[in-house]
Computed example of a mutant assay.
Amino acid sequence: MLSAENVALENRAIRLMLQIREKELNYITNKYNAMGTQAALVGGFAVTTLTSITITENIPFIVRWLFFAFSSISLACCISCILNATFVTVWGPGLALRGPRGSMAKAYYGMVFEQKQVSPGPGPGQG
């Protein structure tokens, strides 16, 4: 009798923990979606800036060079953010749903780890 109650209590605790992890996973997925959308918007501005600006000859060479260099760096960072956000939002929940036992925690910690490359702010539980 005690053994059955112990197993039932363990199963309930695991189920409650998985519900919390699911909420955390949904929060992180929504955060990645928002960051990817913002990066796409800024990347669109960078592409528009690079393709539609007219540079005259009276602007110093170093200013032209800095403008194109920083615009290109901005575009590359936006593309990197979009790719990371897309990969994590597709593969993280997929691993959590279809992975082996313990994959929910593995997906959560993997998504939190990748957050450092996409978002400059601290992750959950980091302040």
Rank of each mutant, 00 (worst) to 15 (best):
M1W: 05
M1H: 07
S3G: 07
S3N: 12
A4I: 04
A4W: 10
A4G: 03
A4N: 12
A4V: 06
L9E: 15
N11Y: 06
R12H: 13
A13M: 10
R15L: 05
L16C: 05
L16D: 15
L16G: 00
M17C: 11
Q19N: 14
I20Y: 09
E22F: 05
E22M: 10
K23W: 11
L25Y: 03
L25S: 09
N26T: 10
I28C: 04
T29Y: 08
N30P: 01
N30R: 14
K31C: 09
A34R: 11
M35T: 04
M35S: 10
G36F: 04
G36D: 10
G36A: 10
G36P: 05
G36I: 05
T37A: 15
A39E: 03
L41M: 05
L41E: 12
G43I: 00
G43D: 01
F45M: 08
F45N: 01
A46M: 06
V47K: 07
T48G: 01
T48W: 01
T48V: 00
T49L: 09
T49D: 07
L50N: 06
L50E: 01
T51Y: 03
S52F: 04
S52T: 10
I53A: 02
T56M: 01
E57P: 00
E57M: 00
N58E: 12
P60I: 01
F61I: 03
F61E: 07
I62N: 08
I62E: 10
R64Y: 00
L66I: 08
L66K: 02
F68E: 13
A69I: 05
F70P: 00
S71G: 12
I73K: 06
A76E: 08
C78S: 15
S80E: 14
C81S: 13
I82A: 14
I82H: 04
I82C: 07
I82Q: 12
N84W: 15
A85S: 15
V88Y: 06
T89W: 03
W91R: 12
W91T: 14
G92K: 01
L95K: 13
L95W: 04
A96S: 13
A96R: 08
R98T: 07
R98P: 00
P100G: 14
P100F: 11
R101F: 02
G102I: 01
M104I: 03
K106D: 07
K106Q: 05
A107M: 03
Y109W: 10
Y109S: 08
G110K: 02
G110P: 00
M111W: 13
M111Y: 09
V112T: 08
F113H: 14
E114N: 15
K116H: 12
K116N: 11
Q117Y: 15
Q117G: 04
V118W: 07
V118S: 02
S119L: 14
G121M: 11
G121H: 11
G123I: 03
G123V: 05
P124K: 04
Q126C: 05
G127C: 04
